[in-house]
Design a protein around this nucleic acid. Structure first.
Lengths: 209, 209
DNA sequence: TATGAACATACTACTCGGTATGTTGTCAAC
DNA sequence: GTTGACAACATACCGAGTAGTATGTTCATA
C-alpha cells in the first residue's frame, strides 16, 4: 500500500470525516453543527459525508462508538491486572484521564451523546442504536465502579454511597473535556503532570489512603 | 395586591416564562428548544414570549442572569463571615451545591451559557451581553477561588495548582445538575445528606484536613 | 370611551437534513 | 485500448421546522 493510494483509501477518508465531525460537534454541539459545517471543514461537500454515513445521527453515533472503543483499547492492559484494587484504579484512572485530554473531541461527543439520550434523541429506531452505545458506556463505567468497590472492601478507600462516589469520580476525571485546551509549548510531561493532579484529586475524594 | 390580580401581574407572567424556558433549555438544550416549545409548555403561544423578551438569545440570557442572581443571593450571608477560610468554604460550598439541586433548570442553563460563549454565541451584539454575564459568573467563581487560596495559605488545605484545583472543585459541586433527579419520597433531609457527601468529596479533593 | 398592555394569529424568510442525479477517476475484462 | 461498471464524490433541489414580524384581539384602566 503506497503513500499516495493510502490517502485515497475509503477507510482513511471515513476516519477523516469522523475526526472532522468530532471537532465540529465539540466546537458547536450536535444541533448547532450542520452536515455542511462538517463537510466544509473537510474542504468537501455533503455528498461525501452522506456517501459514508446514512444520517447525521449515525455519524454522531459512529463518533461516539469510536471514542468509546479508544477508551476500551487504552485500559485493556490494566483491566484484570492482579494488583491491589487501589493501585489498579489509579492505573485505570490515569489512562482514562489521559484519554479525555488526548482524544478530547471524541470524548466530548461521548459526553453529549449521553446527554442527548437522557433527553430523547430522535426516532425510536435511532434510540435503539443509542441505547446500545449507552450500554457500552455503562459497562465501561462498571469497570471503574467495581474497582473502587473492591478497594473500599479492602479498606483502601472510604466513601458513603457507591453510586454517588462513582458519579463524582467520573466527573472529576472527565472534567478536562470541558476546560482543557492544549498550549503551544506543552510537552507530554506537562500533560502527565496535569493528569497526575486530576487523579490525585479524585483519589482523595474517594478517601484513598 | 390581591391573590387574583397577582396571578396576572406582568412580573409573575415574566417569571413563569423564565421558569418554563429554563425547563425547556434544560431538557432539550438551547438549539433544540424552540420558542414554540417554551410557549406550548406554558399553554400559550409565541406572542406572549416575544412580548416580554426581544429574542431567543435574550430569553436565554435572562434565565442565565436569574440563575446567577439566585446564587449570589444565597451565598451572600456567608461571603465575608469572619471565620477560618476552610469553614467559610464549607458553608459556601454547601449553599452552592444546594442551589445546583434546588434550582437545577436555571443552573443547567448557566452551564450551557458558558459552553455557548466559549464556542461563539451569535451576533457581536449578543456576544457583549454574554461577555458581561460570563464576567458575572467569573466573579462568583473568584469568591470560591480566593477562599480556598486563603485556606491553603493557612495550611488547612493542600493542592498543587490553584486554577486546576478550583476547576475540579466546581466540577464536583456542580455535578448534580447532570445526574441528580428528584425522587418522589425525597425529604429536605435527604437532599442535605446528598449535599454533605458532595461537599465532603470536594473538600477531600482539595486536601482539607 | 379610548388607550395601551398583554397577549393570539398569520405570515415570511431562511436554515438544514435528506435525496436524486450528475460527474470523475479507476480498474477489470475483452 | 476501449468499454463498462462501480466507487467516491459534487451539485441541485425539496420539504420541514423555526426565528422573527406584522397585525388582530381582548380587557383593564384612566
Amino acid at each position: 500500500m503506497s503513500e499516495s493510494t493510502a490517502r485515497t483509501m475509503p477507510d482513511d477518508s471515513r476516519f477523516d470525516i469522523l475526526s472532522a465531525a468530532a471537532q465540529c460537534f465539540m466546537e458547536r454541539g450536535y444541533h448547532a453543527s450542520s452536515i455542511d459545517d462538517v463537510a466544509r471543514s473537510l474542504g468537501s461537500t455533503k455528498g461525501r459525508v452522506y456517501h459514508h454515513f446514512p444520517s447525521k445521527a449515525d455519524l454522531f453515533a459512529e463518533v461516539f462508538r469510536t471514542g468509546m472503543e479508544m477508551n476500551y483499547t487504552a485500559i485493556e492492559p490494566y483491566r484484570e491486572k492482579d494488583i491491589p484494587a487501589v493501585m489498579r484504579w489509579r492505573h485505570l484512572a490515569t489512562i482514562h484521564t489521559g484519554q479525555m485530554i488526548r482524544t478530547k473531541p471524541f470524548q466530548r461527543v461521548v459526553w453529549e451523546g449521553v446527554e442527548l439520550h437522557l433527553r430523547g434523541a430522535t426516532t425510536p429506531e435511532q434510540r435503539e442504536v443509542f441505547a446500545r452505545l449507552l450500554q457500552y458506556r455503562t459497562e465501561y463505567g462498571l469497570i471503574f465502579r467495581k474497582t473502587i468497590e473492591e478497594a473500599r472492601d479492602a479498606g483502601a478507600m472510604d466513601f458513603e454511597n457507591l453510586g454517588i462516589a462513582a458519579e463524582l469520580m467520573f466527573m472529576t476525571l472527565n472534567s478536562p473535556i470541558f476546560w482543557y485546551s492544549p498550549r503551544p509549548d506543552e510537552t507530554e510531561g506537562d500533560i502527565d503532570r496535569l493528569v497526575g493532579q486530576i487523579v490525585t484529586c479524585a483519589a482523595r475524594g474517594l478517601g484513598a489512603s
